[in-house]
Structures are given as structure tokens and as C-alpha cells.
């Protein structure tokens, strides 16, 4: 299933609806990068609340997405990582690098708001 991408204000919101195969994750990357360019988004929120596993591939793709979007001048915030998932990620040694995170969609949008205000 393709991850739906909504537009709200100047922001794009990608909310993952179910566990993703690698192909679907790559599809999300391509879709998001394309949309950021076409709508000239000021920021992107990726909501991963429903994901119960984040492995090395998912982590890397999320980092890639953030880097690509940054090249387009927009920040990315990943929101909704579950406590167990966060713990598993750090125990496995996975890191999102400098990618920003927030508790949920609302927090993520607030964070983006602060960023764009500062610009």
C-alpha cells in the first residue's frame, strides 16, 4: 500500500498506515522527494506511529529521505516512534543521526513551525 501524503499549510505529512515492505518504503522516499519539489514544501513530517519495527534498512531510508529533502531546503521531522521501538533501535545500535524527532504529529508540526519562524 502506498503511503498517503497530505498537504497542510506549507507542510507535507506522510502518515504510514501499516507495516512497510522495502519496496513501499523506497516508494515513499521517491514520492516525498518529488512532492517536496512540486509543492515547494517548507517542511515534512513522517508519522511512524503504527510501525512496530524499525530495522537498519528503514532507519537508513528515513535518514536518506531527510537528507534529500534538506537539499531542497526543507526540514524533516519523524514523529510517533513507539517507546519499545526506540529502545530496540538504540539497543541494536541504530541511529537516526541528526534527523529530528517529536512525540506525535502535533509536536512535529509545532517543531517545524519554530524552525520556519526562525528562518
Amino acid at each position: 500500500m502506498r503511503v498517503p501524503i497530505l498537504q497542510q499549510g506549507g507542510y507535507l505529512i506522510a502518515s504510514v498506515q501499516s507495516s512497510l515492505s522495502d519496496e513501499e518504503l523506497l516508494q515513499l522516499r521517491d514520492d516525498l522527494v518529488a512532492r517536496v519539489s512540486t509543492v515547494r514544501a517548507r517542511g515534512v513530517v513522517i508519522d511512524v506511529t503504527v510501525l512496530d519495527v524499525m530495522d537498519s534498512f528503514a532507519t537508513r531510508i528515513l535518514r536518506d529521505i531527510a537528507q534529500m529533502i534538506k537539499l531542497r531546503g526543507a526540514p524533516t521531522v519523524v514523529v510517533g516512534i513507539q517507546p519499545e521501538v526506540a529502545l530496540a533501535m538504540v539497543q541494536l545500535g541504530l541511529s537516526l543521526g541528526n534527523l529530528e524527532t517529536a512525540l506525535d504529529l502535533e509536536e512535529g508540526l509545532t517543531l517545524l513551525g519554530e524552525h520556519t519562524k526562525a528562518d
Partner: peptide, 11 residues
Amino acid sequence: QTVDAARLLGA
């Protein structure tokens, strides 16, 4: 690890 995990939750 705790610090990293907390950060993933946005804190």
C-alpha cells in the same frame, strides 16, 4: 542508550 531512546521520542 536511554538518552538516545528519549531523543527518538522527541525529548
